[in-house]
Design a protein around this nucleic acid. Sequence first.
DNA 1: ACCTGAACACCGTTCAAGT
DNA 2: ACCTGAACACCGTTCAAGT
Lengths: 242, 242
Amino acid sequence: MSFVPFAERERPPKRPAIDRDRVVAAALALLGEVGLDGLTMRLLASRLGVKASSLYRHVEHKDELLILIADAIAAMAADVPTDMPWRERVIAQLREYHASLRRIRDAARVLAETPPAGRNRLKKIDALFGAVLASGCSPKAAADACYHLNNLVVSYAADQERAAAWTERAGISEADLAERKRAFTRMLSVDEFPNLAVMAEFAGSNDPDAVFWFGIDLLLDGLEAHVAAARGEPAVESRAPR
Amino acid sequence: MSFVPFAERERPPKRPAIDRDRVVAAALALLGEVGLDGLTMRLLASRLGVKASSLYRHVEHKDELLILIADAIAAMAADVPTDMPWRERVIAQLREYHASLRRIRDAARVLAETPPAGRNRLKKIDALFGAVLASGCSPKAAADACYHLNNLVVSYAADQERAAAWTERAGISEADLAERKRAFTRMLSVDEFPNLAVMAEFAGSNDPDAVFWFGIDLLLDGLEAHVAAARGEPAVESRAPR
DNA sequence: ACCTGAACACCGTTCAAGT
DNA sequence: ACCTGAACACCGTTCAAGT
């Protein structure tokens, strides 16, 4: 046959099928779909069109993957301007944080069960610390208050996520749940649990965010009292002994 | 052979090898030994001299077993007298609670990952609610404050337990850990994380209980401020908008 | 360098079968 | 009634082998 200028199709330079970033992105998406209990190395691999053993070329083990997912979640929270009174600044930051956790399923559980490594997570903590420090408290108090604020955001959301997982596992519908709760508290003998009935009536209102913000307000009010006391102004009341 | 009065050894009336209570007791003990991640139906069964499938005659599934363990843990916290000022009463209760969680490994994680069913757990919540209500706040505020106090106790301890599990899995000694932390924070660039270095210096002091009690104090100071505000007295400061 | 196949050492749970 | 044997349907992880 005579010459025909038929160029070899230049093969794409054999890009790897997957890389670390794609693994993390797919894992984050899969987490949102199936939740933490459904997030499996095997399932994740199949979503990437690959076998599970391949994942270990890009990630040391599942724990490392979870840390990377946690950092990706932290990256979803928007930055907050710093030119505000400290309390508004803290609250704005927490609102962003809280909202970003609600955006994908079981996000808070991943944060709760994973140590705070990763640049994005550290940046958020750094920003929160800065805002709390602006209250005028000592660095030590700011560090501790920061821990508790962060802990409240994460553990509150994680608690709700775990409750959702339990009711789902039990196959209870949302409507059923309320009825069951009422039946349960009615069952409690009044003399064994004198307070619980009235508590159940008030706890867990229709707006779950309200009790979250109530807790944040308690912490921040407490911090203000702490600052005032440290300044030598009359404390709200003397501390109870430990 | 002539007659010999050989009584048949009267067989013990075939008591079941295990019952529900023994399963729970063994599970609690095993939890303390091997931690939550090592608590396996198979291992538990072997401790009871029985096969794993036998456990399902006494317990519906592992989740139910965890609920029962959680209730047994709650039973370990001593009751607290009620004839004290409300704040001391709350603190005494939390101290008992906190101490009982530290008595057995991963106790807090079990509480955190398990819904609060069971008489013992409910009794503790009931008692705490009673103490908080004595502050003079509304039932709604008491219910919410109660949630956050309980949540702080459990999630703080669970956080420490998880951290211990991570460092153990990574095979890091206690001494190594401190060194690594220091090396890690030194690594952080100061302009990317302007606050973190100073924060790391103050966070997580030698006494981990101190930061726990700092958080409790914030919540209780906040509650006092809330009560004062509700009484129409001048609030500590106006609330920041949400 | 990257992915696959096959295996290892586990899980929780079910169920027919034994006593 | 209670326990066992054997299986089912999974896990995370490793590693020699392929390309």
